[in-house]
Design a protein around this nucleic acid. Structure first.
Lengths: 304, 304
DNA sequence: CTGTTTAATTGGTATTTTCGATTATCATAA
DNA sequence: TTATGATAATCGAAAATACCAATTAAACAG
């Protein structure tokens, strides 16, 4: 049997893949460029295959190289996990946990969540990262993050998920408009172009439109906001109406405004909130406990 | 960050767990007992935890040690898998081969080609991609594709090529027009604007015009089609004549039509069919075998 | 043409790994 | 009680390797 590749060389390969440059990758690994270079060559020899195509000045990962990188990532992160697990004396609620959250959830849960986790699992080091669904999925894939808190349904690629609960949408309007619109809402009573939504990078826009059966696009205003707080400000300035998730309202986003929230049309006018993780993870038990903590904070907890 | 445990030491741990004896485990690993002993100690130091309880004469795995063994097994087997996978790809006719083909070739070769490759090299995973020459060259450059099947002559930038064979052009007209035109074709016998061609994105247009010495542009109809099948339909509807490559005719594109194919003017009224690849590739041998398979399907095989 | 940036190579040094020999400990047989 | 045999740990030297700084070679930008 041929010798197994060393984790060191595999990590050199990952760094090179990330940086696409030998010098930066070497700096990343705290070794010299020559060390990394020969490490890669060594790896190619051991694996008996070409991982990168060299072109004197530059290089390109081969198809096989890309696949090896994927596998290497799993191996490296499993090894890191083993290390942390051992160093924590087998305590699964110890060490770093890198959690990615989308911007339309993050501000309404991270306060409570980090407080609760801090109390229950003081040795757990929660590292939060706020980004769009697509970016988070990418960062999950390349091992930069451990789990993601997303709004579903959503294409989560090859990953696995738990549905933690539901988060109803509310139509938010200025109180002087409330009677006109009625409840449940009749969108026809709203002026054209009076519904404001987030930029399309935010998955909440699609979820809200679908869940609330807002089919008449003439009602939407083409101006798009970058945060729920902006939407609230716009509604409060009587520019129009908008959809706000219940968890934001529970957290007080409408305090000190003249806005009211109305139940939108649609049986299930809500989004699902779910936790997404790599299928190759070895930390399901840790994630499960975190899932329970998050589910307790949601408007509707459906975690079985 | 502390250093990752070495795969070697993890495998020592696995052997020790299996044999429950340092000497036998050492033999299993083809190292001396002292090497294995210090390997285990080293591991305990790195992981900063006790894996086995020593009792002078004998030892016992700790609870944490047992758990670490489980995790280590996953890591070791993932690493072995990576190794085998990489080495398996060393077999040149195995794994993914990403082949880009232009639309005026693809439909007439991919059926036979994929059938033949499947038979001869069942482990080869052919991934086809149909696109214009320019797009294919771009995708070859950035590593998205491995080889391209193109019509030549063509500026293939920094890449290398093999000419596989020739594909003669035929002038295709309705059978009632055949006698008028004669053979070899006299274009002057055709009405003005009666020759239909593909959109200029298709390199075949230029090749056909050049190869068939069609210099009198007044003969061309400004309407352009997007596929050879459209051209055939137009000719069959007596809208005019067109150029069709021999490989399409061989494959039966004129079946169930009232069209006949005539030899056009010009000594070498044909296009070359070639395989294009990056000069830095390490897979020439694989490509060569594919080249041979493709060449066998061409009207005129010139691969030496 | 010149200086810069890139990855590979080289040669020497430092570190790590490995082994064989030795030691310490225990169980057991004589 | 005293050998004997088996165990795992320890030690020191030798071998293998990992590493770096400096250099080379090529491509590129100005």
């Amino acid at each position: 049997m041929s010798k197994l590749p060393s984790l060191k060389n595999l990590s050199y390969l990952l760094a090179l893949h990330q940086e696409q440059n030998f010098n930066r990758a070497a700096a990343e690994c705290n070794v010299s460029q020559s060390t990394l270079s020969s490490g890669i060559q060594n790896l190619e020899e051991q694996l008996d295959c070409q991982l990168i195509e060299r072109d004197h000045k530059s290089f390109l990962f081969t198809a096989l190289g890309e696949e090896i990188v994927e596998k290497a990532r799993d191996i490296i992160s499993a090894s890191e996990e083993l290390l942390h697990y051992a160093q924590g004396q087998g305590n699964i609620m110890e060490g770093p946990l890198r959690l990615g959250i989308i911007p339309t959830i993050a501000p309404f849960v991270i306060g409570e969540l980090s407080k609760n986790l801090q109390n229950k699992f003081p040795k757990l080091l929660l590292q939060l990262s706020e980004d769009t669904t697509q970016n988070l999925l990418h960062r999950l894939r390349n091992g930069e993050l451990d789990i993601l808190l997303l709004a579903l349904p959503m294409d989560i690629q090859g990953n696995q998920k738990w549905i933690l609960g539901r988060d109803p949408f509310k139509l938010v309007v200025h109180k002087e408009l409330a009677e006109t619109v009625g409840e449940p809402v009749d969108y026809d009573k709203l002026p054209d172009r009076s519904i404001f939504l987030l930029e399309k990078e935010h998955c909440m826009t699609g979820h809200a439109v679908a869940a609330c059966q807002l089919t008449d696009s003439i009602k939407m205003n083409p101006f798009t906001a970058t945060s729920l707080h902006s939407l609230v400000q716009m509604a409060d300035a009587r520019l129009g109406a908008t959809f706000i998730p219940q968890m934001a309202i529970d957290q007080g986003i409408l305090d000190n405004t003249d806005l009211v929230s109305l139940k939108p049309t649609g049986q299930e006018a809500s989004r699902d909130i779910g936790l997404v993780y790599r299928p190759t993870t070895s930390r399901r038990q840790t994630f499960r406990k975190v899932a329970e903590e998050i589910a307790r904070l949601l408007p509707v907890n459906t975690l079985n």
